[in-house]
Write a protein that binds this DNA or RNA. Structure first.
Length: 750
DNA sequence: GACCTGCTGCGGTGTG
């Protein structure tokens, strides 16, 4: 006989798996049920037999989905005194996470320890003396731990039960991500056992890619828990503007500035940009919003425009800047303004506000110009409409150049507008770019080799290869490559080999590894500190020169440079009235093939896009007409005054590769994004070139890049010997197989 | 004309 009576109001079997004290916590927190992701994550995590990925959007209780079962295990008698290590990409996230976990753990007698550069050494020492509970750490601090405490790591983590990777997606595809994979392997090798890995992530386009990242080579065995978003409704508006010049002419501005006049912002700012500023001001003021122009310089410009509109209306500033060169204090000022509820506040920000730092609810998101990628647009839009019943609101703004007879084709085809439309269309189709997983990251390999030598006090070449390239993530490095690298690093003084064949730091390696900057896998540019009356405002890249008397826009305010201390790299400023936003530099991002294909679809089609305003509509109509008159629906080639333009609608990796291939045949080729520009070339020569390229088909990255300079991109690339440096570069920016496949497709030469 | 992240150990001096 079966009884139908439930024994508790909870019908959850997962709930029953939790340790009684955790169950009590759930009750006392007033939860009436477990969320979907929590329900599904508890059994495999409690079992601790496999790795697990939990992919769900923000605010769906991912942290609890992982930590309720983890803490349950740490409370059971056989695992008492156990340790869980949680790796997180940001110090700010560790601090947030620590507060949440403390609430959970304070009654359970499980310590929670934040571990990053701002945490006092005494607190770290305390954990090392009696290791137990949860440690929240950055990859850099974990690196420092392995390097400096090599001999005691196995005892510190003797009771390690779980490794959690928070914001897994933010690590994938980067040198920092490669470093983390290597650290996790080095930890397991030190402990001589496997530790279950739990990955937490925002929803992923291809969750299997994340599984392969979390446990390389064994991704198929990872338990995948994907909680699909309850589809939020979206409201979208895209507005088009012409990029018209400022009220004052350039010459006028120059002469007036020379005479020392402080010019009004509205006189020196383009009138198209001012119109966007005014629309933002009129529609966003009074509520909380996020505005994303695409560069730090534009953040400063738009903040200045929006604040001057506030000033003109005599209302307190409602618009606050946020980017990576602002001091911690100024950024926190913006975060506080967003979080408090007395005054409305909107942030003008770069991708610093894309990740999960807590900023409270936001009504809408404004994107100025095309986003860097669909995935970042998605991340940004996910920041609005979180409240129940509300929609996510996206306002897109596009500033298009005025056309004349000499306008480049990219302007005629309205590249910016069409790219933003393509991104929105793909967003609606729920597609976004996967992370690029093919990078060799030899720079990070050098760091890991030096770190492993420090950790063990020396290591044999065979052990190093097994650790980093067989068990570890540097599997693209063959034994032959490895030998080449070792020889080269030896000849540069980075490595030494003693009589017994043990690898040790050479003098150069010693200097690299014994500086605190060693622990980060990525490099950072040299910068000036920007100071006003002893207060840190932020930093300026050394490539953005300033002189005494210059006016600056920075941190949403206007400044005059009073003093530049070259040796100390300090710039002193005083509040002023005029100002220009400094350039911060940087390199161009790369566009995915799927986005370019969608751009072609948008141009070739005649679909009415209801989210365009009349001006954007008009700009799109004109660009479609230009597309047709150029015959681009049927051909990839267009002959212009300055040569042949190839419209292939491919991503930048393929277009960069093709440009290099044509160059190898003496044709001046340049990837212009929307098209590939071939100088000194006509259709006949183009056809011959493609035939020739297909005939040879032996072009390697080494030959293509043989004469290229500037192949050192990542931190230690300058130590990578030449033939490998070319392959390393190609793994990040080129696609040879993809390019050959494209050239072989039928009609490529038509 | 892109964006972002992070960082130890030790020796010196001062204080209770």
């Amino acid at each position: 006989m079966e009884t139908a009576l439930p024994t508790s109001s909870s019908e959850s079997s997962s709930f029953e798996l939790l340790e009684p004290r955790i169950q009590r916590w759930v009750w006392e927190a007033g939860w009436t049920e477990l969320r979907d992701a929590q329900e599904r994550a508890i059994p495999p995590i409690i079992a601790a037999k496999s790795d697990v990925i939990i992919a769900a959007s923000t605010a769906t209780g991912k942290t609890e989905a992982a930590f309720l079962p983890i803490l349950s295990r740490l409370l059971t008698p056989e695992d008492e005194g156990g340790v869980a290590l949680c790796v997180s990409p940001l110090k700010a996230l560790i601090n947030d996470q620590w507060e949440r976990l403390e609430q959970l753990c304070e009654t359970l007698d499980i310590p929670v320890v934040p571990w990053h550069g701002d945490i006092a050494a005494s607190r770290k020492q305390k954990f090392v003396k009696s290791p137990a509970g949860c440690v929240l750490i950055t990859p850099e601090s974990l690196e420092a731990m392995l390097y400096n405490r090599g001999s005691s790591v196995s005892s510190i983590f003797a009771q390690l039960k779980y490794v959690v990777v928070d914001e897994l997606h933010s690590f994938m595809g980067s040198e920092r991500g490669k470093q983390l994979q290597s650290l996790l392997v080095r930890l397991e090798v030190t402990l001589r056992r496997r530790v279950p890995r739990i990955g937490l992530s925002a929803t992923l386009g291809d969750i299997q890619l994340a599984a392969d990242y979390l446990r390389p080579g064994e991704g198929a065995n990872v338990t995948l828990i994907e909680s699909t978003d309850a589809s939020t409704r979206m409201k979208i508006l895209v507005k088009g503007y012409l990029d018209l010049p400022p009220v004052l002419s350039e010459a006028e501005i120059a002469t007036r500035e020379k005479s020392g006049e402080e010019l009004k912002l509205t006189d020196t700012t383009g009138t198209g940009m001012l119109a966007i500023g005014r629309h933002l001001y009129e529609n966003l003021r009074g509520t909380n919003n996020l505005i994303f122009p695409n560069s730090r310089q534009s953040v400063e410009r738009y903040t200045a425009v929006l604040r001057s509109l506030c000033e003109a209306d005599r209302i307190p500033p409602e618009f606050w800047p946020h980017h990576g060169n602002l001091s911690k204090e100024l950024r926190e000022e913006t975060e506080r303004a967003l979080k408090q509820t007395q005054q409305p506040a909107s942030a003008v920000a770069t991708s610093t506000l894309e990740l999960g730092v807590d900023i409270g609810p936001v009504v809408s998101v404004a994107q100025i110009g095309p986003a860097p990628s669909v995935s970042s647009l998605r991340q940004r839009l996910g920041r609005s409409g979180r409240r129940k019943g509300s929609s996510a609101v996206l306002r897109g703004y596009v500033l298009e150049p005025e056309l004349d007879l000499r306008s480049p084709v990219a302007d005629t085809l309205r590249e910016g507008l069409v790219q933003l439309i393509a991104q929105i269309e793909l967003l609606l189709q729920k597609w976004f770019e996967p992370p690029r997983a093919a990078g060799m990251h030899l720079s990070t390999f050098i760091q890991q080799l030096l770190s492993a030598i420090g950790q063990y006090g020396g290591i044999s070449a065979g052990q190093a290869y097994a650790l980093l390239c067989v068990k570890g993530p540097f599997r693209a490095i063959s034994q032959e490559d490895f030998a080449t690298l070792l020889r080269s690093l030896g000849s540069q003084g980075v490595l030494l080999q003693d009589g017994a064949g043990t690898l040790l730091h050479g003098p150069v390696g010693e200097a690299i590894a014994n500086h605190y900057s060693f622990y980060a896998a990525f490099s950072s540019p040299e910068e000036y500190r920007l100071v006003s009356r002893g207060r840190a405002l932020g930093s300026l890249p050394i490539t953005s020169p300033v002189g005494v008397g210059d006016y600056l826009l920075f941190g949403g305010r206007r400044w005059k440079v009073e003093m530049v201390d070259q040796p100390q790299k300090v710039v002193e400023v005083e509040a002023a009235r005029g100002g220009r936003a400094p350039a911060f530099g940087g390199t161009q991002g790369s566009v995915h093939t799927r986005v370019r294909q969608e751009m072609k679809t948008v141009l070739a089609g005649d679909k009415q896009l209801t989210y365009l305003d009349p001006k954007a509509q008009e700009l799109l109509m004109a660009s479609r007409a230009a597309f047709r008159s150029m015959g681009l629906a049927n051909t990839t080639r267009f002959t212009s005054a300055d040569g042949l333009k190839l419209f292939l609608w491919q991503g930048d990796e393929i277009q960069n590769t093709l440009a290099l291939m044509f160059k190898s045949l003496g044709i001046q080729a340049k990837n212009e994004g929307l098209c590939l520009a071939l100088e000194n070339c006509d259709s006949v020569r183009f056809g011959e070139a493609v035939d020739k390229l297909l005939e040879v088909e032996e072009l390697t990255s080494e030959t293509l890049l043989a004469h290229a300079e500037n192949l050192a991109i990542e931190k230690w690339d300058m130590l990578v010997p030449r033939p490998l440096r070319e392959r390393n570069y190609a793994s990040l920016f080129l696609d040879l197989p993809g390019t050959y496949a494209l050239m072989r497709t039928e009609g490529f030469c038509d």
